[in-house]
Amino acid sequence: MNPDAVVIAVLVAAALAITLGVALGWAASRIEPDADSLVVRIDALLPQTQCGQCRYPGCRPYAAAIASGAAEIDRCPPGGEVTVRALAALLDRSPRSPDPAFGATKPAQVAWIDEAKCIGCARCLPACPVDAIVGAPRQMHTVITTQCTGCELCLPPCPVDCIELRPAPALSRRQRQPRAA
């Protein structure tokens, strides 16, 4: 083989490697994803139950942990398979099942206060992450069903166990369909 050809080939390959390496390095620094916007996008996929079952104090902190790589995407029982799949798609990871160590996925639920048993201690009010319980000391409390996320955080503080979780009412209502007549 012509020794010149070998030299030329090596030179060309080296030049290519250097040019592409520089270009890729520059691109990586330029196009690096904005960490904040990533957190927002992850947060948008979380169910906002604010239940803390992922061991983070709410959905947003968990989103930040996912974005920084500190937590896996399988820690959200309320979101279940759907959320894991959506997160996997967003982050380009392989989908997996929710980790049962963080709790089981249940059907949508809302808290309901047995008003006959409630003693009006008001201890459940600060526990609610979305202010969905209304009441005052020595007054009966009640849950705003449409705002309740079913996080169960109000259960432990209640001294008389008068809160129970019930299946959430259907969110959708069938739209009127045009009919052929």
């Binding site: 979380l46 169910p47 906002q48 139950t49 449409t146 705002q147 259907a170 209502r173």
Partner: peptide
């Protein structure tokens, strides 16, 4: 429709939180 309602509810919950 259910999914849209869920998204809306999640957005409400986020705002309240």
């Amino acid at each position: 429709q259910e999914a849209e309602a869920m998204t809306k509810k999640a957005a409400d919950a986020r705002e309240r939180h």
